[in-house]
Computed example of a mutant assay.
Amino acid sequence: MNKAVQGAIGIGLLCMSAAPAMAAKDISKLPVVTQELVAPPFLPKHDQVAKGGPKVVKVRMVTEEKLVQIAPDGTKMWALTFNGTVPGPLIVVHQDDYVELTLVNPPTSTMSHNVDFHASTGALGAAGLTLVAPGEDVVVRFKATKPGVFVYHCAPGGTMIPFHVISGMNGAIMVLPRDGLKDHKGKSVRYDRAYYIGEQDLYLPKGPDGKYKSYSQPAEGMADMLEVAAKLIPTHVVFNGAVGALTGDNALKANVGEKVLFIHSQANRDSRPHLIGGHGDLVWQGGSFNDTPITNQETWFVPGGAAVAALYEFKQPGLYVYLSHNLNEAVLLGAAAHMNVEGKWDNDLMEQLKKPNEHSTPAMDH
């Protein structure tokens, strides 16, 4: 980011409180609910179709700077997080609900943090109203006017913006239509399960010995990390914070006949999700639920700084791989997840007619 852009963002953050304000609508009579956020890939409890009118949905996020392992070889990094996870938790509300966020930066932090909600309107996505130093907290409320899935991320200004984002400080919010999702024919569609997959590109510096460097606190490695990031070549591309985070015992699960909604975000780079052995029955391009979903996609596109939703009804049991179909990133850098599906096999859809090295029996002449 050049100095002019850094300066503009910095001035914007400083001047938000000086802007004249119109009186807010009286929402004091609206129902108030508290949403308990959960760690990805799971979603908080929610209704797919809204019950009643708009609500005030209270959520609480605590910033946490923590040393985490991001690869099986023991490689670690200082993660900057919301609620201790990479990505941060998925928030779920309905269109025209009000999101009331309490953002807490504990005194143990070493940096200031804030949050830019791509789903919100004004004040740099609330980044201009939420900047909190260690030991501070802030409360902000915004109206969720656009239905869809959207990224949120930390954006403290200047070079701190890319540093915080590539250190894991991002997540997503899903704003459902009040009457629920619709398919390409305008008919209501429901999901049996939903999973949130946050893709993260990492840029870890190496020392002269070829090993990844270690640091005593996040800021100590900032210059080295930004130097690597400036070359735009990630050292790791991972789902949900680490290589293999969604494999083995942590693999996603479903049953044959279930419709599964995948919410996929990438706060910094483009991505191309693909489900090996399945499809995107319905894909909401750009994450907008106002738009008609496209159908029967083999691979879908997530622009950097966005989230996209895709729904698939599983037809066959077995192991599926959900990955970025930049196969270099999936296989070599870590952008892959596993999904175990249980149920009865359908030979009409696929059948093995000859096993490897098995000689077929010649037909007899009559």
Rank of each mutant, 00 (worst) to 15 (best):
G7R: 12
I9P: 00
G10D: 14
G12K: 02
L14W: 12
A18C: 13
S28K: 02
T34L: 06
Q35D: 11
V38N: 00
F42C: 08
G52K: 05
V59F: 07
M61D: 05
A71D: 15
A71P: 02
T75C: 13
A79L: 12
L80A: 06
T81D: 14
G84E: 08
G84T: 04
V86Q: 05
H94T: 07
Q95D: 08
D96K: 02
D96I: 01
Y98D: 11
V104W: 00
H113A: 14
V115A: 15
D116K: 08
A119R: 04
A126G: 00
G128C: 09
G128T: 06
L129M: 14
V132K: 01
A133C: 09
A133V: 01
P134Y: 08
E136A: 09
V140M: 14
R141M: 15
K146V: 11
P147C: 06
V151Y: 02
V151I: 15
H153C: 12
F163G: 08
H164Y: 02
M174T: 13
D179H: 01
D179A: 15
L181W: 03
L181P: 10
K185N: 15
R193W: 06
I197G: 02
G198W: 09
L204N: 09
P208G: 14
G210F: 04
P218A: 11
A219S: 14
D224A: 07
E227M: 12
T235N: 04
H236F: 15
V243L: 10
A245G: 04
L246S: 05
D249E: 15
N250F: 12
V256H: 01
L261H: 00
H264T: 02
S265C: 14
S265F: 01
Q266E: 11
A267N: 04
S271Q: 07
I276M: 13
W284D: 04
G286N: 03
S288W: 10
T299W: 02
G305R: 02
V308K: 00
P317I: 02
P317W: 10
L327T: 10
G334L: 06
H338G: 12
G343S: 11
K344Q: 14
W345H: 15
D346G: 00
M350H: 04
E358R: 07
P362I: 04
H366C: 11
